[in-house]
Amino acid sequence: MSLVEPSLLEILACPACHAPFREDTDASELVCTSATCGLAYPVRDDIPVLLVDEARRPA
Rank of each mutant, 00 (worst) to 15 (best):
R22I: 10
S2F: 12
V31K: 01
V43N: 06
D24L: 03
V4L: 04
H18K: 15
V31Y: 01
E54F: 01
P42T: 08
A19H: 10
G38C: 01
P15L: 09
A59Q: 13
E23P: 01
A19K: 01
V4A: 04
S7G: 09
P6Y: 06
D26F: 10
C37E: 06
S34A: 15
V31N: 00
P58H: 02
D26T: 14
H18E: 13
D45T: 06
C14Y: 00
A35F: 05
A19D: 09
V31G: 00
E5Y: 08
A59Y: 03
A19N: 04
G38I: 00
E10S: 15
D53L: 10
A59P: 15
R44N: 12
P42H: 09
L9K: 12
E54K: 12
E10W: 09
P58Y: 01
A19V: 00
D45Q: 12
T36H: 14
A13I: 09
I11C: 06
T36K: 14
L12V: 01
E54P: 03
A16Q: 14
E29S: 03
D24T: 08
Y41R: 07
T33P: 02
D24R: 01
P6D: 14
T33V: 11
F21K: 02
E10L: 14
F21V: 03
P48F: 03
A27Q: 10
M1T: 13
D53R: 11
P42W: 06
V43D: 02
V52Q: 11
E54Y: 04
A16H: 14
Y41F: 15
C32L: 05
L9S: 09
E29A: 07
L50T: 04
P6A: 12
P15M: 07
P58E: 01
L8M: 14
V52F: 04
V43T: 05
P42A: 09
V49E: 11
L12W: 03
E5I: 07
V49H: 12
C32D: 02
L12T: 02
D46W: 10
D53K: 12
T36M: 15
T33G: 04
S34L: 06
M1E: 12
S34C: 11
D46Q: 13
I47E: 10
A19S: 13
D26M: 12
T25M: 02
P20I: 02
L30V: 03
H18L: 15
A55Q: 04
C32Q: 00
P58A: 07
A16P: 07
A16G: 09
